[in-house]
């Protein structure tokens, strides 16, 4: 129960940073917080009270499917962490280029394309 409240608070913090902050680096941090909240939510979906790690060995073949935590959300989260790593890398390099071209990282001043 507390996990879901934490997830929603983190998502709200991430969206707050994205919508209301002007510095581009703060927006990228907000994006990272938002996606990490979704990762937390996904992992918590697979939890089972008193479960064992999802590694099948000879010893626990019999009761594996009754006691293991769900491995599928873990696979999803690993994929998503890698995707967000590359997105953050591209976004930060674009922020460097933005600073070189515009001289500022304030999103209210980067408004060449409007209308």
């Amino acid at each position: 129960m507390f996990v879901y409240i934490t997830v929603m608070l983190l998502a709200l913090v991430g969206i707050y940073a994205l919508l209301l902050k002007e510095n581009l680096i703060k927006k990228i941090i907000g994006l990272a917080i938002f996606s990490n909240s979704i990762h937390l939510f996904l992992i918590s979906l697979g939890y089972r009270k008193g479960g064992i790690a999802a590694i099948m060995q000879k010893a626990n073949v019999g009761y594996f499917s009754l006691a293991a935590v769900d491995p599928l959300p873990q696979a999803m989260v690993l994929t998503s962490i890698v995707i967000n790593l590359s997105v953050t890398a591209v976004a930060l390099s674009l922020a460097i280029h933005t600073y070189r071209k515009f001289g500022t990282l304030d999103s209210k001043k980067i408004r060449g394309l409007n209308g």
């Binding site: 919508l19 209210k108 980067i110 408004r111 394309l113 409007n114 209308g115």
Partner: peptide, 17 residues
């Protein structure tokens, strides 16, 4: 309509959310 697309990214993100 043209003035609403002000080029400010916070406005666009507000629309999305």
């Amino acid at each position: 309509f043209k003035r609403w697309h002000s080029g400010d990214i916070n406005d666009y993100l507000t629309w999305i959310i």
